[in-house]
Design a protein around this nucleic acid. Structure first.
Length: 422
DNA sequence: TCTGGGGTCCTAGGACCC
DNA sequence: TCTGGGGTCCTAGGACCC
């Protein structure tokens, strides 16, 4: 038995925790560079703002309704997310962190409670999360992950915020009403293909012919089908599998045209990637860089490319990352284009505890390791970017836009909330 | 004017081996 | 004229998720 805990319009809820004046209003949170809508309050959904829409396309609609747009504040969201996780870790033994705003809970140990008891348990869990973090959630309970996702949709629409798809009657009734695109793992494109084969609802998919589904969707579709039947195929991953790849990239606030600025930007991403790897206790032995023009400006000449280098030894040193990322980007940079974005990709990740040296490789540079840990300490204590490499640039005209960001209330000393008492 | 970032898994096809 | 069979590994691209 699984329970899926999903935070309601998470980024908006985080903003509301510290700014209650946002309650009851249409609020959206924008992606990096203030580009697209990535979270919407219910009020924003109600006035017809779609998920993922470019902000400039819905700005007047939102403002006309007295709504508010905010730049994303990932430091704040990340911190509140961890607070929600903590409540869950504290409440149930098996938790899989699925995303910044979702966790699967293993409920097998609670099966003796029965459907009503499970509902009651999850109701109080929900109340506890709200009380301790300020974040509202919905919880769906079911015998498989795919069904618990469906249960969560029901929960979000219900008054009590909890729903269970345990008994066959309720499951049948719910799946008959659930559109095929609303199943976890099936988006519009796949949905259209299923529809053209007469599969319109979740119940249709559950009862479909297995070889037909295999043909349309491959093995993934077959798994979803079994999960809809109540046969669990996707286990709870309480221990996160090791990360395999990492990407650090950003769109530019304004187009980049020179190699010099491209070098700065790529050094910035390389430094971020190295710091993230160190924080996660990882090293990488393949590093790559990519760049691309703005694909939405079809009148401009388009170009995108990438290059990778295999390193002699796995590393997480910022110095090495910057050096190799610049080599990669130099190899693919071409004059005469307006670049929109660049980034660094890191592959072949391994734990710092299991690095193997081959006969020809240079021994691990301990001085470099010490330098990195000093830099990390300073940046942790005084804020990200306090100490950085000169090659990351000073003026940074290419920097991502973030004009409407709220303060980092919980993670930055200078931005703590000020409370006055009289 | 203005269109995100970070992941995973699966599959088909090519390279290569015996 | 006639041109095997079976296996692994790697990679790029597609597809999906939040």
């Amino acid at each position: 038995m699984f329970a899926l805990v999903d935070c309601n319009c998470f980024y908006v809820s985080c903003e509301r925790v510290f700014n209650p004046s946002l309650e009851g209003k249409p609020v959206v949170v924008l992606s990096n560079n203030d580009g697209c809508v990535v979270a919407r309050s219910n009020e924003a959904k109600a006035i017809g703002i779609p998920m993922g829409v470019p902000y400039f396309k819905c700005k007047s609609l939102l403002q006309g309704a007295g709504g508010i747009a905010l730049s994303s504040n990932y430091e704040l969201y990340g911190d509140l997310s961890h607070r929600v996780y903590e409540v869950l870790f504290d409440s149930v033994p098996d938790v899989e962190v699925y995303s910044i705003d979702e966790c699967f809970l293993g409920m097998s140990g609670f099966a003796h409670l029965g459907p009503d008891g499970l509902m009651e348990f999850c109701s109080s869990l929900r109340a506890r999360i709200l009380k301790l973090t300020g974040i509202p959630t919905g919880i769906g309970i079911a015998p498989t992950k795919v069904l618990s996702k469906a249960a969560n949709r029901v929960a979000k629409k219900s008054e009590i915020g909890v729903a269970a798809l345990i008994t066959h009657e309720i499951r049948d009734r719910t799946l008959a009403k659930l559109e095929v695109e609303d199943i976890w793992g099936i988006n519009k494109r796949l949905g259209a293909r299923l529809r053209s084969n007469g599969i319109v609802t979740a119940a249709h998919l559950r009862d479909a012919n297995e070889s037909l589904i295999k043909q349309i969707m491959g093995i993934i579709g077959v798994r979803i089908m079994h999960e809809l039947r109540g046969l669990s195929c996707l286990p709870l991953l309480a221990i996160a599998p090791p990360q395999k790849n990492m990407v650090c990239s950003r769109s530019f606030g304004q187009p980049v045209t020179t190699l010099e600025q491209m070098h700065e930007a790529i050094a910035f991403h390389a430094a971020r990637a190295a710091a993230k790897l160190r924080h996660r206790g990882l090293r990488a032995s393949v590093i790559g860089a990519f760049l691309t023009t703005n694909r939405f400006k079809s009148i401009e000449p388009q170009y995108s490319n990438s290059a990778t280098i295999t390193l002699p030894t796995a590393t997480n040193s910022t110095r090495h990352f910057i050096q190799y990322a610049k080599l990669c980007i130099s190899a693919i940079f071409k004059d005469g284009y307006n670049y929109k974005k660049c980034g660094v990709s890191i592959n072949e990740l391994s734990s710092v505890n299991t690095v193997q040296l081959d006969l020809l490789s240079v021994a691990v540079n301990h001085r470099d390791e010490k330098l990195m840990s000093v830099i990390d300490d300073l940046n942790r204590r005084y804020g990200i970017g306090t100490v950085r490499f000169a090659s990351e640039g000073i003026g940074r005209p290419w920097k991502t836009r973030s004009d409407m960001r709220s303060p980092r209330y919980t993670s930055c000393w200078d931005e703590l909330m000020v409370v006055s008492a009289y």
